[in-house]
Write a protein that binds this DNA or RNA. Structure first.
Lengths: 220, 220
DNA sequence: ACCGGCATTGAACAAGTGTTTAGTATATTG
DNA sequence: CAATATACTAAACACTTGTTCAATGCCGGT
């Protein structure tokens, strides 16, 4: 069917939007220029504004589309029976350009990324509750906060991928550092990091008395 | 001595640098303008370039200074006998403007932030080894990678402070969300998150055989 | 065939940016 | 005191950026 010149069934606006998602994901919203996006989509800069009103409008359209695509991707993952957090995360990682766009959005606190983070949180929380019932995740009194922290660690670690890779001595690419990273992560999440409950005890005492247990009382 | 008009003993170049550190920490290097920094320092924009050559040169000077200040702060923390990771981290959090600058540097992968991250890693690794000897941290076969991952989580979580706070329902400020965040973190780092060693076992098998244990083989 | 509404373009505009440059004051040095 | 270097300013320059606008081509309806 499509041999030499492949037929692009996307409408021009969709092509612009997809090019923008790629650009925004690569260099971020601030450094991406309308001219570059237009060139990638093979149109003039004016047309971009004609379709989306402004650069901000273009971003909104991209946010909306990425959120929808993420939702679609996650639904597929659930339907295919991925019931543990790792598989779910792997499913999200599948579409790398969407993930890159999302991470760039997290970098500059875009409203779209905020919405997406919240929706991912709610979904992950349900997944965690399910995992607790199945005996995969240790039961916790405040699973809600635990999930929030874990999600922050998850995506925060992804944001610092480059720095961590440099420290690990591996290449910056996700595929190269993944084994080392996953191994250490699994160890920490399986056995914890502290040798005993002294920090937990100290925290409990602090929470009940309101006094800081460690010996730093000065220096506001 | 200094009652009404406090004498600013800093040299003009230092004042410009400090103003730049504040600006860069607030809005990031990209969005900070030379004119704004000059206005904050009470000088003309040209003077900024006169002293630092270019905006990039100004950033290098800021990087250098922040790295030095961080080192000084950490040395003080060590000398004051803060031998556990939490106290060390609290000490770093002390100078908030330095931390903000560092986090902004991590956001856009500035070389200065990379250097600082690496130096913080080496210091934290030594601290972890010490903590293992003292029985505070659980011994691990690859403490190196574990430290790298934990540091990524630590600062990554700080980068996503706003998003996590919104999910937690607390204010965005560090002081408001700290209790909830710290509580969940301590729980995760004390007991782990997984209920058993199934993920660890699966990983060990994967590492030895090279076959992915979970049942996803399709969908590249 | 004519017309009206799109999609699309090329050029120009306006604002903001880092940077340069000429010029002025101030201090330092012989 | 003269000379010179340094600190500093005001203005302009050059460039990039988002955005606007008039003009053109295209396609469907009557």
């Amino acid at each position: 069917m499509c041999s030499a010149e492949r037929t692009d069934d996307r409408t021009t606006a969709a092509r612009i939007r997809d090019a923008a998602i790629l650009r925004f994901g690569e260099v971020g919203f601030g450094k991406a220029t309308v001219r570059d996006i237009a060139a990638d989509a093979g149109v003039s800069p004016g047309l971009v504004l004609h379709h989306f009103g402004s650069k901000a409008g273009l971003r909104e359209a991209c946010d909306e589309h990425v959120v929808a695509e993420f939702g679609r991707s996650r639904i597929e993952a659930v339907e295919s029976g991925a019931t543990d957090p790792f598989a779910a995360m792997a499913g999200v990682q599948g579409e790398q350009h969407l993930m890159r766009y999302f991470l760039q959005g997290l970098r500059d606190n875009s409203p779209g990324a905020g919405r997406l983070f919240r929706s991912l949180f709610e979904e992950t929380l349900r997944l965690m509750e399910l995992s607790v019932e199945q005996g995969v995740i240790r039961p916790s009194e405040n699973l809600h906060d635990l999930t929030a922290v874990l999600l922050g660690w998850q995506f925060g670690g992804l944001l610092l991928q480059g720095q961590v890779a440099q420290v690990l001595g591996t290449g910056t690419g996700a595929a190269e550092m993944m084994p080392r990273y996953a191994c250490a992560s699994i160890e920490a999440l399986t056995h914890g990091v502290f040798a005993d409950t002294r920090y937990e005890d100290a925290w409990r005492e602090y929470a009940s008395t309101g006094e800081p247990p460690p010996g730093d009382g000065d220096s506001a």
